[in-house]
Simulated assay, not measured.
Amino acid sequence: MPIPRMRLAMPDDEDALGRLDRETWAPTHSVRPPRQHHEPFFTPRSGPRDHLVAELDGRLVGYIRLGFPTELASNAHVRQILGLAVAEEARGEGVGRALLRAAVEEARRQGARRITLRVLGHNTPARKLYESEGFVVEGVQPEEFHLDGVYVDDIFMGRPL
């Protein structure tokens, strides 16, 4: 598979990103119900400027959402990964890793000193990816979520920039 092109999302990407989000939803990585067709992908809190997308042959195959963990000025030096999705046909091809690296670079460009994320305890592939890119477990909330009939840990991970 060719190397995906990374870029900031544009307003015109909304439909493609919403479709990708619905197609990749699973209880292994999402704590909210699946997004419905009528729900907008972009919101006032998370617009195009907060998303990096991976594109192959003009088609979106992944996105990563980067934002602030809180609205506090004292926390403005930290960025948090608030979502990551890769199309099924592009998995295992390095798209997730490329998106993660692009988010780290974007956080640096924005002047951040740290980057954090939350991942469900049973999402082993994502945890291995994050660890391979320098993220370490900084905290665990045991059985924080009840998903698909199972209690699941919420894992906090982070790394300096």
Rank of each mutant, 00 (worst) to 15 (best):
L56D: 12
R127E: 11
Q110I: 00
R127G: 02
P40F: 11
T116L: 05
A16I: 03
S30W: 14
Y151C: 06
H38Q: 14
E23N: 11
P48S: 11
T28A: 12
L147P: 03
E89W: 03
P11D: 09
G67Q: 12
E55P: 01
G18C: 04
E88M: 02
A85F: 07
P142I: 03
I115S: 02
V95Q: 08
G94C: 05
N123I: 08
P34K: 12
E88L: 10
G62L: 04
T43L: 12
Q36D: 08
Q141A: 12
E55S: 01
H146S: 11
L161M: 07
P34D: 06
E133D: 11
T124V: 15
R114C: 01
D57V: 00
Q141V: 15
E89M: 04
H51C: 10
V152K: 09
V78C: 07
T116S: 13
R35C: 01
D50H: 15
G47V: 01
P4G: 06
I81G: 03
A126E: 13
L60G: 02
E93T: 14
H122R: 14
E71W: 06
L8I: 03
T116W: 04
A126S: 13
V86F: 09
G149S: 11
P33F: 05
Q36M: 12
L129D: 12
E138W: 07
Y130G: 02
L52Y: 04
M6R: 02
T70Y: 09
D154S: 14
A90H: 11
R22K: 06
D15K: 10
G67W: 12
G18M: 07
L82K: 13
R7G: 02
T28H: 12
R35G: 01
L17A: 10
S74I: 09
V119L: 04
R118L: 05
M1W: 06
D12L: 04
L99E: 02
F156N: 03
F41Q: 07
T28W: 12
N123V: 08
S46P: 00
I64K: 02
L66K: 09
F41N: 05
F145Q: 08
H37F: 02
A85K: 07
M157S: 06
R118A: 05
A54D: 10
